[in-house]
Nucleic acid binder design. Sequence first.
DNA 1: GAACTTCATGAATAGATGAACATATATAGG
DNA 2: CCTATATATGTTCATCTATTCATGAAGTTC
Lengths: 123, 123
Amino acid sequence: MDIQPQNHTRCTELSQDKEFMESLQICLIDNQKANHLAEIFKALSDPTRLRIISLLLDNEVCVHVLESVLGMSQSSISHQLRVMRQLRLVRYRKEGRHVYYALDDNHVRLLFAQGLLHVEHEE
Amino acid sequence: MDIQPQNHTRCTELSQDKEFMESLQICLIDNQKANHLAEIFKALSDPTRLRIISLLLDNEVCVHVLESVLGMSQSSISHQLRVMRQLRLVRYRKEGRHVYYALDDNHVRLLFAQGLLHVEHEE
DNA sequence: GAACTTCATGAATAGATGAACATATATAGG
DNA sequence: CCTATATATGTTCATCTATTCATGAAGTTC
């Protein structure tokens, strides 16, 4: 992807190029969508939550096991799970005293994978 | 994707299933990768930055135009651009008084698009 | 060189976020 | 009912973040 030089030299001119400005307005996502999207990415912006997701990629896992694999307190893991639950990144299934977590849908898996690609591409 | 019920009924038993625990340890991403990935997602976790990205998807745009399309102060936009610059989400090109910004690579575009899919899928 | 435009930066602040700890709920077993 | 286990929630406090304002640097025009 190469940068396409604009035919304009001054911003005052650019701003007067109504056609270009209007095309930008169409590209611009609306506030509601931006906020919602930001929430999703924010949920993915914590190392602990990402580590949890990596464990849930191929497995259904209960909280206690997450606690022992991650070596963190049950409380903090539960907090993180709630965040992801509320955004429907994960879902859970109760069985007796246990709650088994899994990724909610394939979008989460794809987002995670795409992120990993970006990170690995940078190194 | 269906949740696969485990053959275990108690966590104490599960934790003693060394094979399963070891397979989880293998799934778990390491701290460094988790931190790096979290940084990328954090950069995408702000509505203003997402709106900027949406404008840069197909265009190279200078700061002043971003200011006028977004209706925000030049300073706050410049601050946000710096965040994205430092994480190599965007790159810039100087031309006289103007600085033209563009997405740095296609990974950003893909991440954004994947996120949008997730959001739209939820509605 | 003086005035103006574009952009970046630093400091300050209100609001959001996160970690740690205690507590609450819910189920199972006796 | 009492205890133990598994999980969820609340609270407090320190830290982080986004925005605004003030300022400065660099380029342009006259």
